[in-house]
Design a protein around this nucleic acid. Structure first.
Lengths: 229, 229
DNA sequence: ATAGAAATTTGAAGTTAACTTAATTTACAG
DNA sequence: CTGTAAATTAAGTTAACTTCAAATTTCTAT
């Protein structure tokens, strides 16, 4: 069974998580701050790390960055507080595999844990950690927010980056337009689903060899879109 | 359609919510205070509970805690007043699925309701093995809505997924065409029973080694179909 | 502040895919 | 055999997606 490390300073959340994950059958270790967490990550051999962002000594961001810098690609799920929304982007940029905003429901966290573990177990999984990814004829760098097509620099908007990132984080899964709206735009803003279509259009034009016959970002009629990789 | 319980002491909000949610097609029950709410939760069978925090007798916090203590995991959305100390711990400690601060926009609440219901409907939780099933030569993943035949990705429509899911849920039982129409299409739509045949045909072509002589999806003459597993 | 540029959002027309129906052929049960 | 039910095919209908252009909002630099 999978071994999970929880790095979290707030005792309530830490204990709540520990209990629940153990109940779900995971083996759980805990660290009470970033420093301790980092040490345990470097020592231990975990299948998944749950990392609070807001912590004394070393923030979750710092830990994540350091870990990835050492080429350790253990899956990481970030816990962020509401309002740290801007940092959502950062999280994945840092090489985290997923994030969830507090307060979160246990149900959702469990679902994400399973999803991340499942993805990391698939042998087809490349590193996934690097900042640079090539999809079709597009090469994007999520750290510098730059993109190239055939070696030529090309412009890409912030939302385009975000959506592509989300699709990559859920590659080979069909994601619905509403899921994208929820995760990229949030609940406060509620654009039409057409808006999503438009971004898919733009992404396809950048990614696909032949945008009229997409082979990477596929549409699943009545369901959503799926990025193959 | 989903059944929602509103637990809210302020008559205006209560009625406003009730009207709007009914208009959206939800079945709505109401409770006027925490005590009454708790009783109804324990009695009734709801898909979602909208729970005000500030209430006489029993606060929303109390109700939430009690409900979760009894291992009832109906999704809960908390209504909190602005300024109310709702810290990050909330979600986990109390087990609520989401919250929204008053005054809130109806649109946002509706979006959250939909999201929570969608999450709770996914068969994500439960057994560890999950959503991948192999039937005959077809391998389907109900989470990502993807399907493979002999390792090759293949297209499957939304309805095909739904019907297959239903047949699997009732494997080794004979289900009538009308049962399928009722459960998959609902009462509003009423296609011919021939429509069902067409989907069975498509499923057989994907599942059966020899679609002309099905051995997995059998026909029960004059009755319906049966999926063997 | 304000103008100009860029990005986002929306609506509508066009296109494609999925669904439904009807019609024909084949299989089944009495 | 015969009548009825199911499988199959093809054509019609509906719903969903794509695309484009125009309108709006947001951003940037003056």
């Amino acid at each position: 069974m999978s071994k999970i490390l929880i790095v979290e300073d707030e005792p309530n959340i830490r204990m709540g998580l520990t209990d629940n994950l153990q109940f779900e059958g995971y083996e759980v270790d805990i660290a009470e701050d970033g420093e301790m967490g980092l040490k345990m990550i470097l020592d231990g051999n975990y299948n998944l790390i749950i990392l609070d962002v807001m912590m004394p000594k070393l923030s979750g961001f710092d830990v994540c960055r350091t870990v990835r810098g050492k080429n350790i690609d253990t899956p990481i799920i970030l816990l962020t507080a509401k309002g740290e929304e801007i940092d959502k982007v950062l999280g994945l940029e840092l090489g985290a595999d997923d994030y969830i905003t507090k307060p979160f429901s246990l149900r959702e966290l469990l679902a994400r844990i399973k999803a991340v573990l499942r993805r990391s177990n698939t042998p087809t999984q490349g590193t996934g950690t690097g900042y640079e990814v090539t999809i079709g004829k597009l090469c994007v760098n999520f750290q510098s927010y730059s993109a190239k097509i055939d070696g030529q620099n090309t412009k890409m908007s912030h939302k385009e980056f975000e959506i592509l990132k989300f699709l990559l984080a859920h590659k080979n899964e069909t994601v619905s337009r509403n899921e994208l709206l929820e995760k990229i735009w949030g609940y406060e803003e509620q654009p039409t689903t057409r808006t999503v279509d438009n971004f898919i259009l733009k992404l396809r034009q950048k990614i696909e060899e032949n945008p009229n016959h997409p082979v990477i970002i596929l549409t699943a009629h009545g369901i959503g879109y799926k990025l193959l990789a």
